[in-house]
Amino acid sequence: MITVDNLRKNYFSDKSGKFAGIGKENGLSFEVNDGEVFGVIGPDGAGKTTLFRILASLLLPDSGSATMNGIDVVKNYKQIRRIIGYMPGRFSLYQDLSVEENLRFFATVFNTTIEENYDLIKDIYQQIEPFKTRRAGALSGGMKQKLALSCALIHKPDVLILDEPTTGVDPVSRKEFWDMLKRLKEQGIIILVSTAYMDEASRCDRIALMRDGQFIATDTPQGIIDAYAETLWAVQTENMSTSLNDLRSCSEVLSCFAFGDKHHITVEHGFTKEELSGFLKEKGYRNVKIEAISPSVEDCFMALTKD
């Protein structure tokens, strides 16, 4: 079990030129239960990596505390490093070593062998085993990810910390990756995963929506969606780029965001589709399609960060 209590870490970011970090207003507090996949979801710069690095004992928090299975991540960092499997956001294996050499190296680093824990990584490693003599740098994005996961798992960690594991990975490999996480979860491993892809949220047991270093909502994916109270419509017109601004100019439309080939809008209570359709026709749009839709996690995120 992971317990995080009132965690704060602020620093000056050279990249954005402003203060970044987590828990600036209220310290972060949350718990992750055994055998749970906990997703931290938010855009770039939300503080996901900072949070994960603190939990992986790689950064010191300014204040607050965090424990994993009762072990403090600051005081007992050496013990923490034995029980976690950490996969940084950037591919961080040795590109000039082969697949097998990488795995063997990390197994030895963690005082174990590939053979000892082979059953744990078997499902994943079997997919890249045909390429085991290939240098890691020559692997595809999806295969790199599988190798990195194998290396993070080789010592049978209690907690798996995955920082944006699916960024830059093709959709098929992403789906496979989440299937693998599901199987690992069944082995009782706590999985802490972050992503900027909102559509991956539903694969987690519980998610925290994160922005500007704060959790703006923590619940099951369904719970987050159920809490959505707005009237949500998807609108399609012939000219999508101009209609975005025209929709926003309509006084009854509360918010309007582009979602691929549709605009998702929320409207005031009592406003009807016919009224909106009339508004758009007046603006000169034809073939207007409006339908009520159920919200996705992304809609919830937009609604929660609107103000």
Binding site: R81, S92, F106
Partner: peptide, 13 residues
Amino acid sequence: ERGTMEVLLASPL
């Protein structure tokens, strides 16, 4: 620079 230090640090090495 290559980020491998981050993994090494997070290990018992």
